[in-house]
Each structure stands twice: as C-alpha cells, then as structure tokens.
Amino acid sequence: MFNESNYDWDAHNRQVALEGRSVLERTGESLARSNQIAIETEQIGTEVVSELGEQRESLLRTRGRLENANEQLDSAKTVLKRMGRNALYNKVILILIILIEIAILISVGYLKFFK
C-alpha cells in the first residue's frame, strides 16, 4: 500500500503547506511592522498637533500684543500731533506778541520824538 506517487503527493502537499506557512509568517511580520509604524506615526501626529496648538496660542498672544501696540502707537501719534499743533500755536502767539511790542515801541518812539 505504500505507493510512491502518494509519497510524492504528500511531500508536495507538505512543501506547499510549509511555503504557505512561511508566506503567512512573513505577512504576519509585515503586518506587525506596519502596525508598529502606524502607532509611531500616530504618536508623531499627536505630538505635531499638540505643538501646532501651542504655536497657535503663541501666535494669538503675539497678535493681541501687536494689536495693543498698534493702538498705543495710534494714541501716541495723536498726542504728538496735538503737541505739534500746540507748539505751532505758541510760536504764532509769540510772534504776535513780538509784533505788538514792536508796534508799541514804534508808537512810543513816534509820540516821544514827534509830539
């Protein structure tokens, strides 16, 4: 009953089964590596999202500070314009006072020498 064709057939089946098992083991290892890479990628993604959140908060704080600085610059600009106007008014008033004094001196001189 020992038939050589059955033996060849069994050996062939065993060989196919071993090759199938080898393929399954390689596939399992590949899946395990892929799973590990996916886990690492997820961790990196989580870290990146967290860091981006922190950077967003930092940018929002910086934007608020810049808006505040812009408001203060506008206020300072208004004050400087007002100060410039006041200085101009003071110069005009001083010139008027000088002109009035000159007119008074001329009037006094005219009255003293010609009357």
Results as ranks from 00 to 15, higher is better:
S22M: 04
D10F: 12
N35W: 03
L60R: 13
V16K: 14
R65Q: 15
I39G: 02
S107M: 08
D74C: 01
L18H: 06
Y89M: 05
I95G: 02
S30F: 07
Y89T: 14
R63C: 01
T46M: 12
Y7V: 10
Q15P: 00
T27M: 14
T46G: 04
E42M: 05
A87S: 13
Q55W: 07
I37K: 11
A69M: 05
F113Q: 05
V92S: 06
E57P: 01
V23F: 07
M1W: 04
I44F: 08
L96F: 04
I93T: 09
D10M: 12
L66V: 14
E40I: 02
L99D: 05
L60A: 12
V92Y: 07
S107N: 02
R82P: 00
G20Q: 14
E51L: 15
Q72L: 14
T46D: 12
Q72K: 10
A38N: 07
R65M: 15
G84K: 11
Q55F: 09
Q72N: 09
Q72Y: 03
E25W: 02
Q55P: 00
N3G: 02
S58C: 00
E47S: 10
T46E: 13
I44L: 11
K91W: 05
R61G: 02
I98D: 01
W9H: 10
W9M: 10
E51S: 13
T78H: 03
E42K: 13
S58N: 06
E29Q: 15
W9D: 10
F2C: 01
E19D: 15
Q72W: 02
L18M: 10
A76K: 03
A76P: 00
E47V: 05
E101V: 09
G53Q: 09
S30E: 13
G28K: 14
N86Y: 03
N35E: 11
L94H: 06
L59N: 13
I37M: 07
I44Y: 07
V23D: 07
R21D: 04
S107I: 08
T41H: 10
A69L: 08
E47H: 09
N68T: 10
V16Q: 10
L60P: 01
Y110N: 04
D10S: 08
I100A: 15
E101D: 01
A38C: 01
G109V: 05
R63L: 14
L31R: 13
Q43C: 01
R82I: 11
L99N: 04
L31Y: 14
K115T: 08
R82W: 04
L59K: 06
E57T: 15
E71R: 15
L31V: 13
E67I: 11
T27W: 09
L24E: 13
A69F: 03
Q43S: 05
L105G: 06
R26E: 15
S22N: 11
L94D: 04
V16M: 10
N68F: 08
E40L: 12
T46Y: 01
E67D: 14
S5R: 02
